[in-house]
């Protein structure tokens, strides 16, 4: 057995990459929590079949922009904070910019996913086409860059991307020809 330090959470290597202070803050105090009345707002649900987490995104698009957004549902610290950060980042933005942000965020997840130092599991080659060394615009991501550490924990990537995929689905549904 290890020394008494074994139980000191401060010493957990790698944990601080996953559970950054911004992430824990958004987990404890989620922004834009709740549901908008739908209609008029558009409501879309996302599921993580791995863990049973469910997320509900309600959003309003007016004049080509995301005029309002709310997040409901339950999830782990990563999925909840990612959804909270996302809601803050996209609210008031033109849909084109939001789509670009979704692309950049998912790029951050997949770029790093493919360059993980997880030797021997053979999974590093799976996303070859997504591995084009695409420069991540840290300025564009802002606080969202805090979620970068998630990619070191592959099973948690789906937690971080759940709300983003759900938002993308919602935008697709809104913009689909009636």
């Amino acid at each position: 057995m290890g020394s008494a330090d074994r139980w000191d959470t401060g010493l957990m290597p790698g944990m601080e990459d996953l559970y950054r202070e911004i992430i824990l803050d958004h987990y404890r105090s989620p922004r834009n929590r709740g549901e908008l009345e739908s209609p008029p707002a558009h409501r879309v649900e996302g599921f993580n079949p791995l863990c049973g987490d469910e997320i509900v995104v309600t959003l309003e698009v007016r004049d080509g922009g995301v005029s309002d957004i709310r997040i409901a549902g339950t999830g782990c610290s990563i999925s909840q904070s990612s959804a909270s950060l996302m809601s803050a980042a996209v609210k008031g933005k033109p849909v084109t910019e939001v789509r670009e942000l979704i692309r950049t965020f998912k790029g951050m997840m997949s770029v790093h996913e493919s360059t993980l130092p997880t030797a021997g599991d053979g999974s590093a080659h799976e996303d070859a086409e997504a591995t084009e060394p695409e420069a991540i615009d840290a300025d564009a991501l802002g606080e969202l860059a805090a979620l970068q550490g998630v990619v070191k924990f592959p099973v948690r990537i789906k937690c971080a991307t759940l709300s983003w995929n759900t938002l993308a689905q919602g935008l697709d549904e809104i913009e689909a020809p009636a």
């Binding site: 957990m12 049973g52 339950t74 999830g75 610290s77 990563i78």
Partner: peptide, 25 residues
């Protein structure tokens, strides 16, 4: 504390527990 987060922290101590719906939704 979400079971995913519990399991993640426990793993740091070599403790393997399952977190999720256990195929019994």
């Amino acid at each position: 504390v979400h079971p995913h987060d519990i399991s993640q922290i426990l793993d740091q101590y070599g403790v393997c527990v399952r977190a999720g719906h256990h195929c019994a939704k």
